[in-house]
Simulated assay, not measured.
Amino acid sequence: MTNTLYLNDLPDTLDLGPVIAIDCETMGLHPHRDRLCLVQLSSGDGNAHLVQIMKGQTEAPNLCRLLADPQVLKLFHFGRFDIAAMLNAFGVLTAPVYCTKIASRLIRTYTDRHGLAKLLQELLSVDISKQQQSSDWGAPKLTKAQIDYAASDVLHLHKLRDALNVMLLREGRMEMAQACYDFLPMRAKLDLDGWPDTDIFAHA
């Protein structure tokens, strides 16, 4: 397993294939206030590619082309936040997407625990550490522990998607899940544009 860190953008020649796992690290949980610091990606081959985003950076052409490429499926866990963070930073709306948290909420109705660590433990027997989750991602130089933690959030999403799809197919909820994934980029845009906590479908 290799974790490769790049500054500002992905290299021109990198090809990660048609299905890519993506996650983000930010300075906090409010995209308008807390800047994007790191974007990590994996093709599912056991390697991670991490892009460190500098303060004030508004462009990452290679990364943005990938995010908007209709031929590349982007896998997330809680994609709603990551899509919004990258839209706020770069002005690009990520699509098409798949979200393992949405899949989990639709199919694992026997539990209210849908965090990535719990999912990986239950479905793949993989344990990951969340110790670095609240560290300073805006630091000029990231530690090895931070890089390893960030990589762990994308290395297993391909297999997790496969396991969740088995359950979705078994219970007849794949079509419902796909409709939710299709709406997810707009849900992230609604968050940024002022409707983060409003149920726009509610009668009241």
Rank of each mutant, 00 (worst) to 15 (best):
L66Q: 02
D197V: 06
D191S: 02
M176F: 13
N88M: 15
V39R: 00
T198A: 09
R65I: 03
I102T: 02
T13Q: 02
A188F: 01
D12Q: 14
L14E: 02
T2C: 09
N88V: 11
K141I: 15
T198E: 13
I22P: 02
I107T: 12
R105A: 06
D182W: 06
L38E: 00
V92K: 00
I107D: 08
P196D: 03
I102V: 04
R35S: 15
P31N: 12
M86I: 03
D15N: 14
A202G: 07
F76S: 01
K130E: 07
A85D: 02
K55T: 12
G194K: 13
F78C: 00
L73Y: 06
L14C: 05
P185S: 05
V126K: 14
G46P: 07
D199K: 05
D193M: 12
L29W: 11
L116W: 02
P70A: 10
A139Y: 14
D148L: 09
I20R: 00
R113W: 00
T198I: 10
L16D: 04
Q57H: 04
L41F: 12
Y149W: 06
D162G: 08
H32G: 10
T198G: 07
K130S: 01
F183M: 13
H114Q: 07
R80Q: 02
I20Y: 01
L106K: 02
S135E: 11
R108V: 05
T143S: 15
A204D: 10
G172E: 11
N88D: 09
F90H: 01
M1Q: 10
D15F: 12
K118T: 11
G138K: 08
I102P: 00
L164K: 04
L160R: 04
L168I: 10
T109P: 07
L123P: 04
L67K: 11
C24H: 00
L66V: 08
T2K: 15
A188C: 02
D162Q: 14
L155A: 03
P96W: 05
N88C: 12
A179N: 13
S134E: 11
C180W: 11
D127R: 14
Y149I: 01
F201Y: 12
M176E: 14
G115Q: 03
R173G: 12
Q52H: 15
Y110T: 07
S42M: 05
